[in-house]
Design a protein around this nucleic acid. Structure first.
Length: 490
RNA sequence: GGCGACGUAGCCAAGUGGUAAGGCAGGGGCCUGCAAAGCCCUUAUUCGUCGGUUCGAUUCCGACCGUCGCCUCCA
């Protein structure tokens, strides 16, 4: 597998420290508000990464931190007259609910900054002992001059930069304006923790260094985040961790590009800072949202528009249609088909049962091309192209008459691909589109379908069409085939 | 100002030193009582512009134009 590495700015083969095992640290949310769809794009990219690694046979340990102590949180809690824990709790819930709503698999660990203060203090002590950090008015600071490699990740040349007025308002007693804070001394009324340097709270960057070390060790495989984290956050993490440990920090840096809305950067002032709740209100399909995010490479900006979401929904309908027809041929409803948990072994066996009319090659091509696309820096655009080539070819054969076994094998192949995509099973995305009043039970639908069939047999097209309209209004789509009328909920 | 990314059909989006995947939308046809779905055909002599290297460039180099990002706590 090859992945782009921000450090070298090129594709590099993934070489995990321990063969077959990958440790990933992903910068998580600051829990002062519900995530916006830009945050979610990044989390979805990280979901694709872990799912891809799984499909390609790696074991994965993913850590995602929750930043639950920080200026905005302290302000918010203060204003609400709440403790930090009280203030952040609902936002933590929103965060997990949003991940679930987008089909994002849970990480192995979700540590909170406030649970790892001790680890941060240890790191800071190590930095002070080795002369990389110093105490001054306002707290403890990292001395950037002591770390020659500072700026390598972001390509920033510190000797050129940061002499402007933006740092003039600095409230701290740093030796050098470029130094960054590791520990902030508490101001009256602020939440604080005891430390060798007095009561205070950690700076932002140190939490990731402490928590990644705790769960993944001093050196680990992959660190992810949005591009805006490259500088200063990740640059500072590198400085802290490498100086404290005297060991390499991260082998592979992966950063996802931002999301734009209607061609503009999302921002509160523009009113285009959407959260999932906003999209739900507008009747958007979250399944289509996942598909849309999946369809654009992670290092490329996505321009989110209504039209793009609609197009994603249309593409999904085409995939659903194939699945629907395959399930019918495979005999049995959705319940009897392989689901997303079908292992490679099982899928392989159903392939073998598929006959040798060349359909095997169609199945193999999907598996091969899809995996190759993932292994090439998570090129899902190419992976989806492979999927649609499979769709076209399978539809063609469906028209000519596909055997039950072949249909089952095709469904198994789709399930395998869906282990990464996570959008192919409509049953998993029950999104209420119909009002309760219009909703019909299976028996009712079948009765109406039978009545329509009877009307058609008598060539009473008016009545037949009326019944079809009635079903359509209830969200039921009919398909007349030589083998009879099929129906499904849209 | 410094650093960086990108600019491929109506829209979205892969890709390669040797002649442009895929999706959406559109047009024509087959099928159908009519539909729906599906299938077939069709929609970029061309990859921002201008130069250069090359037998040959969309792909490499340079300039320019445009869009966007980062430059101390925003995914």
């Amino acid at each position: 597998m090859r992945l782009h590495n921000t450090m070298s700015r090129r594709l590099e083969p993934l070489r995990p420290l321990r063969a077959g095992e990958v440790g990933i640290y992903t910068c998580g949310p600051t829990v002062y508000d519900a995530p916006h769809i830009g945050n979610l794009r990044t989390f979805l990219f990280e979901d694709v990464l872990r799912r891809s690694l799984h499909l390609l046979g790696y074991r994965v340990t993913q850590v995602m931190n929750l930043t639950d102590v920080e200026d905005k949180i302290i302000d918010g809690a203060h204003r609400a007259g709440q403790s930090i824990a009280e203030f952040t709790a609902p936002h933590v819930d929103e965060f997990f609910a949003d991940l679930a709503a987008l089909g994002i698999e849970p990480a192995e660990h979700y540590p909170r900054a406030t649970e790892h203060i001790d680890g941060m203090i240890e790191l800071i002590e190590a930095l002070i002992e080795q002369g990389y950090a110093y105490t001054a008015e306002g707290g403890v600071f990292f001395r950037i001059d002591r770390f020659e490699r500072y700026g390598r990740l972001s390509g920033i040349d510190l000797s050129q930069v940061v002499r402007g007025e933006r740092v003039a308002d600095d409230e701290y007693g740093k030796d050098d304006v470029r130094d960054f804070v590791l520990w902030k001394s508490a101001k009256p009324g602020e939440p604080s923790w005891p430390s060798p340097w007095g009561d205070g709270r950690p700076g932002w960057h140190i939490e990731c260094s402490a928590m990644s070390r705790h769960f993944l060790g001093e050196t680990f495989d992959i660190h992810c985040g949005g591009v805006d984290n490259i500088f200063p956050h990740h640059e500072n993490e590198i400085a802290q961790s490498e100086c404290a440990h005297q060991a390499p920090f991260v082998r592979h840096w992966l950063h996802s590009e931002h999301l734009m809305v209607d061609g503009e950067k999302m921002s509160k002032s523009k009113g285009n800072m959407y959260r999932l709740a906003d999209l739900r209100q507008r009747g958007a399909s979250l399944r289509a949202l996942r598909y849309l995010f999946l369809s654009v490479h992670y290092r490329r900006k996505i321009n989110f528009t209504d039209a793009s979401l609609d197009a994603a929904g249309s593409a999904l309908r085409r995939l659903d249609e194939l699945r629907f027809r395959l399930e019918h041929v495979a005999g049995g409803g959705p319940d009897s088909t392989a689901d997303g948990d079908a292992g490679g072994e099982e899928a392989r066996q159903s392939d073998d049962r598929a006959d040798a009319t060349g359909f095997q090659e169609v199945l193999d091509a999907l598996r091969r091309d899809f995996r190759a696309a993932l292994a090439d820096d998570l090129n899902l655009s190419a992976g989806l192209a492979a999927l649609f080539r499979f769709v076209k070819e399978t539809n063609r054969r469906l028209e000519a008459g596909l055997e039950t076994r072949q249909a089952a094998a095709a469904l198994a192949a789709l399930a395998e691909v869906d282990r990464v995509l996570g959008v192919l099973d409509p049953e998993a995305w029950l999104e209420p589109t119909q009002s309760a009043a219009a909703w019909l039970g299976d028996a009712e639908i079948e009765a109406l379908v039978e009545r329509r069939d009877a009307a058609r047999a008598e060539r009473d097209w008016t009545e037949a069409d009326r019944l079809r309209d009635e079903l359509s209004a209830a969200g039921v789509v009919l398909e007349d085939t030589p083998g009879g009328t099929l129906w499904r909920r849209s």
